[in-house]
């Protein structure tokens, strides 16, 4: 599969378009439907972070690129906004009673839980990149 790329402006209204793009790309790559949903969810959270935190209301560009390597579906989300430090985001306490729960950090938690690997890179020229990996399960074990 050749890499597929989508560039959109940093606006939350573009999330549906991004979802549609990764869904189609993952299906073309032969990703099983249950995993397509996980990829859709993780990508949505990564792009929301770019739009809401990296650009925080300023106009910019979000690039989403998908490809397959070593039987793994890869999504790379790139923005050119503020650098993001994932170590500063507290992990949510998913065991705490809802009434007392601080529900921040759930997006990053989903990105980690729903993929098989996640990387963060920051570079002045290449921008901020989040790379999400999901192994393509073929049913052959």
């Amino acid at each position: 599969m050749p890499p597929f790329e989508l560039c959109v402006r940093s606006d939350l209204s573009q999330l549906a378009k991004i979802s549609e793009f990764v869904t189609q790309s993952a299906r073309r790559a032969g990703v099983p439907e249950a995993d397509v949903f996980d990829i859709q969810m993780a990508t949505d959270e990564a792009c929301t972070n770019s739009i809401e935190h990296a650009y925080s209301g300023n106009m910019g560009e979000v690039r989403v690129c998908c490809w397959v390597e070593n039987r793994t579906f890869v999504v790379r989300v790139t923005d050119f906004g503020k650098q993001f430090d994932p170590t500063k985001v507290p992990m949510p306490d998913t065991e705490a009673p809802l009434e007392s729960r601080d529900i921040g950090g759930l997006g990053l938690f989903f990105m980690r839980e729903l993929t098989d690997g996640i990387e963060f890179h920051s570079d002045k020229e290449k921008g901020n990149q989040v790379i999400l990996r999901k192994r393509i399960q073929t049913g052959e074990g």
Binding site: M41, D44, E45, L98, E99, I103, L106, G107, F109, F110
Partner: peptide, 19 residues
């Protein structure tokens, strides 16, 4: 069809306020 962490936050806000 799709329910992100932002939607979960909205649901939990409603849940907490109603209770």
């Amino acid at each position: 069809q799709f329910f992100s962490s932002a939607a979960i936050r909205a649901l939990l806000m409603g849940y907490k306020e109603c209770r």
